[in-house]
Amino acid sequence: MAKHHVSATVNGDGVEFLCATDQTLLEVLRDELHLNGTKEGCGTGDCGACSVMLDGRLVCSCLVLGVEAEGRRIETIEGMAVGQELHVLQRKFLEHAALQCGICTPGILIAARALLARNPDPTEAEVRYWLAGNLCRCTGYHKIVEAVQDAAREMRGA
């Protein structure tokens, strides 16, 4: 089967890969680029574990074809910390015990960062509705919402 040759950037680095038409971006990230931080929980866009940024938009990578990534900019959990420095959200998730099993955590962190980029001071309800597409079965979301709001506070310098 002839595969597509795709060039894109992932976390700022140029990448090239081959993929079949029906391979999703999630499969490409995990199986071709070996970036396993992006998780598959459902494969149907219902859980958000595979959340990544695509040209600055929050998307489920299971609902994007790998071939659609041609020329696009992808950001994944692997690019969230800068060197030794965790992103504020990552640090706040640790401090607030906002993760347990952690399988949903990469997707939630990516989604939360996208929220804070457009709304630096979200209300509790805004956090909850923005994150409604990210299922977490461990935490009951309580500490996740607290961590996001606390990270927002710190990022605002409040």
Binding site: L35, I77, E78, M80, L86, L94, G102
Partner: peptide
């Protein structure tokens, strides 16, 4: 902080 935490927030 949990020992498994950093690995879980960094993927």
């Amino acid at each position: 902080l949990r020992p498994d935490g950093v690995d879980k927030v960094t993927g």
